[in-house]
Design a protein around this nucleic acid. Sequence first.
DNA 1: CAGGTTTTGGACTTGCAGGTCCATTTTTGC
DNA 2: GCAAAAATGGACCTGCAAGTCCAAAACCTG
Lengths: 210, 210
Amino acid sequence: MTRALTRKGEATRARIVAGAAAEIRERGVDEVRLDDVMAHTGTSKGQLFHYFPDGKEGLLLAVAQHEADQVLIDQEPLLSNLTSWPAWQAWRDRLIERYLEQGVKCPLNGLLGQTGRRAPGAQAIVTGLMWRWQQAITEGIRHMQSTGDIAPDVDADRAAAALLAGIQGGVLLLLTTGRTDHLEAALDLTLDSLRAGARMSDTHEGHGND
Amino acid sequence: MTRALTRKGEATRARIVAGAAAEIRERGVDEVRLDDVMAHTGTSKGQLFHYFPDGKEGLLLAVAQHEADQVLIDQEPLLSNLTSWPAWQAWRDRLIERYLEQGVKCPLNGLLGQTGRRAPGAQAIVTGLMWRWQQAITEGIRHMQSTGDIAPDVDADRAAAALLAGIQGGVLLLLTTGRTDHLEAALDLTLDSLRAGARMSDTHEGHGND
DNA sequence: CAGGTTTTGGACTTGCAGGTCCATTTTTGC
DNA sequence: GCAAAAATGGACCTGCAAGTCCAAAACCTG
């Protein structure tokens, strides 16, 4: 299947995916035609179906995977190094900044649009993204527990799940309202409560980094 | 415009909206054809365009409004009476129960599918829904502050925003993962932190309702 | 440089789904 | 009961966008 694929071929394929992704972020999944992708990437129908034998379906799946990966990449290296309160804060700031500048042109926009339909494929990709995301957060919490910055009796998985939910909801509301209020509130209040938990059960000193 | 509209006419119109809404919940916005709606509601093309001169666009908008209203109605009378911790708990339980039984067939599914595209109309409807929703939560928090169950220094609007974000994200994750974990975690942890806030700054007595 | 393979271009086909139209039936108001 | 208005049924039209096909060009590989 994916056997022969010249250097040039791979480049073209990548160009198509990236171009389609951009187009979709810009105008929404169901507003993008194959012709748009062709125009925007300087390719022909022949090429589209050459690299994506399953047609639009396959292309959209590739785009979804591309975007899902990008979402996490955009948060690195911060997301993988949540080892101090300033680090958490920096990650929080990065998230807000990123989504604010993206505005409505959010990768999620394209991903979610596919959630319902195209069940098996797109859904699996989104699920995978969420799982990896939550996993990273969980690890961050666990690390903070190991340093005593978060109370040991906090259920890391549960807290990570709540935080992730807050983020997703915040982004969703950013998408509909255009404001980052919800995202900020969800992030800040959830992080505050994690910090508060430490103070209550672990009082050996003050971790003054606010 | 909306002048003449017989009893029978209104019934038909309502039947179309309800049927289309059901169909959309079931199979997703972009899988539903006008023919499906006709079949499912026992109507003809003539009727569809008679009651929705703007065609599918108008119908979808009507469906969106219908679903948005339904989302809040489903939470009543609990949502408008968040006046004690048990009341909050009951509301929380209702939310989880509702969404669990709905599973993927969530009204939001249809609403969100339209968010990106059809910008002005659908977006306004979703925004309106979110605003009303958050407003109700804010009022609940304010009431709890008036009875001393929540610390007065809590920013009710901000807390409501965070809670709403958690809910939306939780539902979104329920839609993709099929599990209510995120929704539960978001609700419980946020409510816990509201409760905790009261205990810390308002210690005149124990509000033992947990 | 010759033969096979991959890449590219673009004309053509096709099915479908939204939308139009009008003829017929039913309801309403007097 | 009788016009006028509203409700209904369904045949028909139409445009668009996905997908097909093949021929030509570029490219490896020995």
